[in-house]
Structure formats: C-alpha cells, structure tokens
Simulated scan of single mutants.
Amino acid sequence: MLFTKGDVPSVAAVLRTLTSFCDWSGLLANPDKTYIYFGGVANDVKHQILLLTGFSEGTFAFIYLGVPLHSSRNSFDTYGTLIHKIQTHLHHWTTKFFSFAGRAQLLNSVIFGLTNFWCATVLLPKKIVKIINKLCKDFFWNQEDGHRKLVFKSWSDIYSPWNEGGIDIKELLS
C-alpha cells in the first residue's frame, strides 16, 4: 500500500520511484490487480491520475491482509470477521486437551497476536474488546454454553505476571 497526495505531480513521483524499483528488482505492479483509492480528489484530477498510471479506481470497503478497510467509520458488523476468526480458533482448540499453561500460551500468542494485528490497523471499540475478553475467559476456564466449571483462581489473578502468582495472560481491556 502506498499513500500520496492526491495530485498529478505526487503520483508521478511515486510512479518514477516504482519504475526505478522495477529496474532494480525486476518486479512490476500488475495493472489488473492494482487499484487507486481516492479521497477528496476532484473528478478531473482523478481522470488524469488514472490515465497516467493505467490502474483502475478501487472502491471502499475492501480487505487488506485480512482486515476490512473503509473510508468511513467502521460499524459493529465490520469486526464480525475478527470475532469469527477468534471463535473458529477457540472452537478448534476446545476439542484438544490443554493444560492451563497451554491455554494461556495459545491465548497470548495466537489470539492476542491476531487482535494486536487488527489494532495496528483499526481502533477496536470497547464492546468488541469485551466480547474478545469473554471468549478468551470462557476458553481458558473451559466453559461451554454458559456452564461454569470449577475455577481455582480469580480471573484478575490470571492476568497477574508469573512472579505475582498469575499465568501472565495479557488483558486487552481492564
């Protein structure tokens, strides 16, 4: 993804850089797979840029590296992809027999890594973070359909670091 000011000289400078990169590496942008997205650019300037580049104009919303990108504020439904991915991982793991340390490692490395990747791109609403925390909590305690199992530590102790007697799970939102 490349960003530039929405005028012809700026786009021409980016094209020169891409051409230089192509000469050096042998890699070329595929015009059939490359799109330009505009925001606040006049129609005549858009037309000039599209003619200059030979690329097509893309439309929002689209998915980039698994994260939906929009030109406006994201709705609650936008985050359904993230929730679904997390639920799929957790559902798959519930069929396995993991220790508490194994569950903690999966949550810290996979689920929170996935969530942090999304957070690097979009700001997650508190409601979504609370849903993710609940899913992780239910997975950790092996709860299904709201049926509570025997718990040996409080959830706040679980979030504590190892040296304080916790399992060092990172909390997304306190």
Rank of each mutant, 00 (worst) to 15 (best):
D77I: 03
I49F: 06
E171F: 12
P68I: 08
N108I: 01
I132L: 15
V110N: 07
L50H: 06
N133T: 10
A29S: 10
T95W: 07
F112Y: 09
N108L: 04
K127R: 15
N74L: 11
W24A: 14
P68D: 02
L27H: 06
F38Y: 03
I169T: 10
F97V: 09
W118R: 00
C136H: 02
T53S: 10
Q105F: 15
R16P: 02
D145K: 13
N43A: 15
L15Q: 12
L150W: 15
S99H: 02
Q48D: 15
F76K: 14
N74F: 06
L123M: 11
P31I: 07
K170R: 07
S10L: 04
N142C: 05
T81N: 03
R16N: 13
L106I: 04
D168Q: 08
D7R: 13
P125T: 08
P31W: 15
P31R: 13
F97P: 00
S99V: 00
T81D: 04
T94G: 01
T17S: 09
L2E: 09
F100M: 12
G54H: 03
D145A: 14
V110G: 00
N43E: 12
L135M: 14
P9T: 04
I83Y: 01
S72C: 12
G54P: 00
P161W: 04
